[in-house]
């Protein structure tokens, strides 16, 4: 009977490779000749093949469902959204002189809040989407918590926005500016809003009706994720996951 820790004869390796069709033609011919004259080797080969067949016949088990990304048909809201987008573009063109008078950082904050309000009031249904690269790692981490990206937008100035919906009804949106931004004013704190800079980007995280303690943990984690080395992120990730498992549903 084979032992796991013994050094193995080369013929055993070759018989296995023969069973897998992985031997070079010359070696294959040589081994085939030996198999023809050695009942012992032939019996061993039959055993290997039988084991392979048993392994191939193993049931795969119950896999969890794929992440929720129903695609296919275009829902009504997307048609409405397309029309709304045209109207927004038209309005933006008309209001450009007004917008240009605003401070750039205020624009980022204001535009992000407005986009979040829109997202929170009329939450779209989950749909297939490609998360923008700027939000890629964040998207993966939030998906681990069951927060799926369901909405995204990129402005003409390069601001990226991604909206997430959680299994417990949470609505969260992340806004990334291509530039460093000043922190949001303190009077915005009631909105469960956090702003920070990392890697030359400005970030705004906004949630609706989320318990502040939970929001704070998520915001701290995302700040670390976007700005800290990986080894500092891991403990925060564990803390966040532990907190999330016992978290109450969002109020929304």
């Amino acid at each position: 009977m084979p032992q796991a820790d013994q050094s193995f004869p080369s013929e055993w390796d070759k018989l296995n490779a023969f069973a897998d069709g992985e031997l070079a033609p010359a070696e294959q011919r040589a081994l085939a000749a030996r198999l023809a004259t050695s009942p012992e080797a032939a019996e061993t080969l039959r055993g290997i093949v039988r084991l392979k067949q048993e392994l191939q016949g193993l049931p795969a088990g119950d896999a969890p469902p794929l992440p929720s990304f129903p695609a296919a048909s275009r829902p009504v809201w997307r048609r409405v959204a397309a029309i709304a987008a045209v109207l927004v573009i038209a309005a933006t063109v008309a209001l450009t002189p007004v917008l240009l008078r605003q401070d750039a950082s205020e624009s980022f904050l204001a535009a992000s809040l407005a986009a979040h309000e829109q997202f929170a009031i009329v939450p779209p249904q989950p749909t297939a989407m490609v998360a923008p690269a700027a939000a890629g790692p964040v998207t993966s981490e939030l998906a681990r918590l069951g927060l799926q990206p369901v909405w995204q937008a990129t402005s003409a100035t390069g601001q990226v926005r991604v909206g997430f919906i959680g299994l417990r009804g949470c609505r969260l949106s992340l806004h990334v500016s291509p530039h460093v931004e000043p922190p949001p004013p303190s009077d915005q704190s009631a909105r469960t809003l956090a702003g920070w800079n990392a890697g030359g980007h400005g970030y705004l995280l906004i949630a609706s009706e989320m318990p502040p303690a939970r929001f704070e943990i998520i915001a701290d984690f995302l700040k670390a994720l976007t700005g800290e080395p990986a080894d500092k992120v891991a403990p925060l990730r564990t803390a966040l996951l532990n907190d999330w498992r016992s978290a109450q549903p969002c109020l929304a």
């Binding site: 009977m1 193995f8 080369s10 040589a30």
Partner: peptide, 28 residues
């Protein structure tokens, strides 16, 4: 690694008719 894994599997299963051949270099 695969041949060791299969040997170990067979060892665990205890297949009476399947065993590793004695140490020898393959012909050729």
């Amino acid at each position: 690694r695969l041949s060791r894994a299969r040997a170990m599997l067979l060892s665990i299963i205890g297949g009476a008719n399947i065993r590793v051949l004695p140490n020898r270099h393959a012909a050729g």
